[in-house]
């Protein structure tokens, strides 16, 4: 069956609300491709949690599945409640950089620390797009935004290295210009036992590209591709300070650590003996 036809099984048929050229639509397509390639016939075994921001609209209400569209930043703790009660379900969080790395950052770190068996997909457009283009924790240094009219004066945060050190089982970063690598990464993330995190650096033509002087989406995608360097490149180390290069690649934890559900099951067993 053609993948496009197959993917209709995954969608409600409600049109996505994204601006023309938005990376959100690309991420939705690639995610469904990954799910399709993993052999899922529908999304019945999935629960999607998302917060507030453009990326949160990827699953809710468009995916034909259970979805919980939470308050801003709280998709991960809501997902925690769902996963602990129903460990049999595949719980996936979608969110933007503001949602996941800004207001909801502490939940992200703690979910990684706990090795909560969920997948978080962060669409990083380097800006608060929905609210009109304000500076984000991911905005490259010196960028003009509506709240940094003389250029942003804070370095961006590197989610990849943060989560690898916080205890995540799988971490990856790609851009919307790396569709093939992204598809494979999402498949790995969805099949990884434990906490997995995929960052997709994505274009926001409306609130970011336009103001950075990109003429069109094609130019933005070209920029995403040319700025990308492999994560193990020594040059990648300077990334967090500059935010102008995008270190792409994967991190896989070699030692298997128990998931939060497994740890709690152990505790329940211990409690039963007392």
């Amino acid at each position: 069956m053609s993948s496009a036809a197959q993917r209709k099984q995954f969608l409600r048929g409600i049109p996505f609300p994204f601006c023309a050229g938005c990376g959100g639509a690309t991420v939705a397509t690639v995610f469904l491709k990954a799910v399709d390639e993993l052999g899922f016939k529908d999304l019945r075994s999935f629960v999607f949690c998302s917060g507030i921001g453009c990326a949160s609209w990827i699953p809710s209400p468009h995916f034909k599945a259970d979805s919980i569209h939470t308050t801003h930043g709280r998709s991960i703790p809501v997902a925690t409640g769902v996963k602990l009660v129903r460990p049999d379900l595949n719980v996936v969080v979608f969110g933007g950089d503001g949602d996941v790395l800004g207001i909801g950052l502490s939940h992200l770190i703690h979910a990684a620390r706990r090795n909560l068996d969920i997948t978080v997909i962060m669409v990083n457009n380097m800006i608060y797009g929905m609210t009109g283009g304000q500076v984000a924790a991911t905005t490259p240094l010196g960028t003009w935004t509506t709240t940094t009219p003389y250029g942003s004066y804070e370095p961006p945060l590197d989610a990849f290295r943060l989560l690898a050190s916080a205890g995540a089982s799988y971490v990856a970063r790609w851009t919307t210009a790396h569709m093939a690598e992204l598809t494979e990464s999402l498949k790995t993330a969805l099949t990884t036992k434990g906490f997995s995190f995929v960052e997709v650096v994505s274009q926001c033509p409306t609130a970011f590209g336009r103001r950075r002087g990109f003429k069109n989406v094609k130019e933005m995608l070209r920029w995403l591709k040319t700025q990308s360097i492999p994560i193990d490149d020594p040059e990648a180390a300077s990334m967090p300070e500059q935010g102008e290069t995008i270190a792409v690649g994967e991190f896989r934890r070699r030692t298997v650590i128990p998931t939060l559900t497994e740890s709690i099951q152990q505790v329940t067993k211990r409690a039963g003996k007392q």
Binding site: P77, V78, G81, L84, V85, S106, H107
Partner: peptide, 15 residues
């Protein structure tokens, strides 16, 4: 914040 958010998630999971 996370406490009540996870309670809400657990409630939707039927508990």
């Amino acid at each position: 914040i996370a406490s009540l958010a996870s309670v809400i998630g657990a409630s939707w999971a039927g508990t």
